[in-house]
Design a protein around this nucleic acid. Structure first.
Lengths: 338, 338
DNA sequence: TTTGGCACTCTCGCTCCGAGAGTGCTGAAA
DNA sequence: TTTCAGCACTCTCGGAGCGAGAGTGCCAAA
């Protein structure tokens, strides 16, 4: 596409994303192309419309980018907006104050992304394929009731009340704790399974069974953590003035089970994914754009974090800030050994 | 107030809460008072309006309950709606599936309340004045990095990464763990403070300091957990058709710090509190009603759970179901020893 | 290829109007 | 004294009509 057409498309996108009003040839002329006449711009606009990149809400209105228009913009025209110092500091401070466990970090990441992009955000927890036990603890609650505490890789704490068939004293449990820690800590879940198979019947096997159940749940992702934040930001946008639009988005966000799959699937192999309007498979996200990237302490452990907003979104700003948060979170997690 | 006036007020409230349309004399006559003429009902309506219990959106519209109308209704006319078996089962199942820790339970309670009342819900965690340590654990991460795990009353797990000034082996830590557990477990936080004062300088004092910090944070309520759910339910109501109304409510709900104070303050000493429209101190909750009750495993540990919805709310249903969930949660928590 | 000029189209906000719903009042009946 | 039928009145709501304004597409000239 010729340079000038690109420049005009870029201008239309920029203008529309900031003002939310269809942009006409005169506005473009006075603000972007002073040395062109509005008639010239009009004919360019008409051609861009023929190419499918622009549309008119009605015959005598200005132009609005179509989904393909946005697509062309993010693929070829967008350059990342530099992040103001104020925002960078904010991101750093927020992440520094994050707690030392994965779950707390995921929430913090979602919060921060929502705040700096002024849209809704969604984040899933980094998750390896095999859970690793870092530490294990057994606490006697009642004679036949034991609290099992598991510390997994990522400083993830899991607890479960186990009703044992035989009574056990705290001393018994302390002994078992030492034994389990010696054989299991630092090991992946398959090690626990091997021990389980080899264990004699009784308390030991009972408890190992529950350990495995917890690990399983984590690995199978049935307890996969997905959080979202910043829906209130959407309410500020004119495209969400009728609350039914918000309702649709909320429905997607609150359907946690589906969402976690969706995120993994969307992100695929790439490190940055932008899904615009009709490209969304879910009809409830029509009119919305989703920007996703990955984050995590290592290549093995990657979570997904993303922004959901109207297609009329400041993509260059959103992408820059989203990536900044993702990078910051990854660094912080590596640093914390999470 | 005469019986008939009461009956009419009750009918107006009932009719309006179900249809969200101002109710006229004819509608009342045909559906509730077949043996009265609409003219008679009209004069009663006029008197109820004079008393301040009803209002007209405009001269020739039907009547709508005022805030005082709702107030009179909940104080004198409301009788709790029986809860269908289906709903009772749902509540029981949801609570049964709740995890064995306070935080998980709070979330479950909020979710369940939102689901059965079809409004937004909010819940704060039960909190005693003094934190009790149930169990403590120390895990070596790096030579000079220790993960402190605290199990508090209510099966609340707290963790913190501690950077120690001197290196410590896991054996050192295991020894300290045993010592701490012997002296602290089952004890309130003041015991920890006494030990801290008496402890010699070094690793022991360092770690005890962090234990106290965690307990402090919990007791001072700076980390007070408040969750909310079901905002999407509000979006279904006509009074929230303009999204700015939702926005205001969301702002209140997301201001967690303020909310926890507000809840405690609103509930005061009573066990059921209903705040209707203008009775709310927050201007952002105008047009909204808040129904609150307490729940928790014991008299010492009480949290607050509530419903937020339009003033046009099915009070008799809301109150009944809210109380049912609160009772169920209390029982379940007592049972779990949370 | 660009540009000024011009006719054309469509929205938006405004007013006007009639239908419909619901009220308040009045005078008579119970 | 209460109830009620009848009636005039008020107000909303939706649709129609209209003018202003914004923006376009096209054309002929530079």
């Amino acid at each position: 596409m010729e340079n000038r057409k690109q420049a005009i498309l870029r201008a239309v996108v920029h203008e529309f994303t900031t003002n939310a009003v269809p942009v006409g040839s005169q506005a473009l002329q006075s603000r972007y192309f002073v040395n062109l006449s509005s008639a010239t711009i009009r004919s360019e606009l008409a051609e861009l419309a023929d190419l499918g990149y622009l549309a008119q809400p009605h015959t005598s209105a200005g132009r609005v980018p179509t989904d393909s228009g946005y697509r062309y913009f993010v693929d070829f025209l967008m350059d990342l907006e530099p992040i103001p110092d104020r925002v960078q500091t904010y991101i750093r401070d927020e992440l520094k104050a994050a707690p030392g466990d994965v779950e707390g970090m995921v929430e913090r990441v979602a919060m921060t992304v929502a705040a700096v992009t002024q849209n809704a955000s969604v984040a899933s927890a980094p998750q390896g394929t095999l859970a690793r036990i870092k530490h294990l603890d057994l606490v006697s609650l009642e004679p036949k009731e034991v609290l099992l505490i598991l510390l997994l890789e990522g400083n993830l704490l899991r607890q479960q009340v186990v009703n044992t068939s035989e009574p056990a004293t705290q001393a018994d449990l302390t002994r078992l704790t030492a034994q389990f820690n010696a054989s299991l800590s630092g090991r992946a879940s398959d090690e626990a399974r091997r021990h389980y198979d080899g264990a004699p019947l009784g308390l030991e096997k009972e408890l190992l069974g529950r350990v495995i159940a917890v690990l399983d749940m984590y690995e199978k992702g049935t307890e996969n953590l997905v959080v979202h934040d910043g829906v209130r930001n959407l309410l500020r946008q004119p495209e969400f003035a009728e609350s039914s639009r918000v309702h649709q988005v909320l429905e997607v966000l609150e359907e946690t089970r589906y969402l976690t799959v969706l995120l993994r699937q969307l992100i695929g192999e790439s490190d940055l994914q932008i899904v615009i309007g009709s490209e969304n498979t879910s009809s409830r996200l029509q009119g919305c754009a989703v920007v996703l990237t990955t984050y995590g302490p290592s290549d093995r452990l990657k979570g997904v974090v993303g922004v959901i907003g109207p297609t009329r979104m400041a993509y260059s700003q959103t992408v820059a800030r989203l990536q900044a948060v993702a990078r910051g979170a990854s660094d912080r997690m590596a640093e914390l050994g999470v």
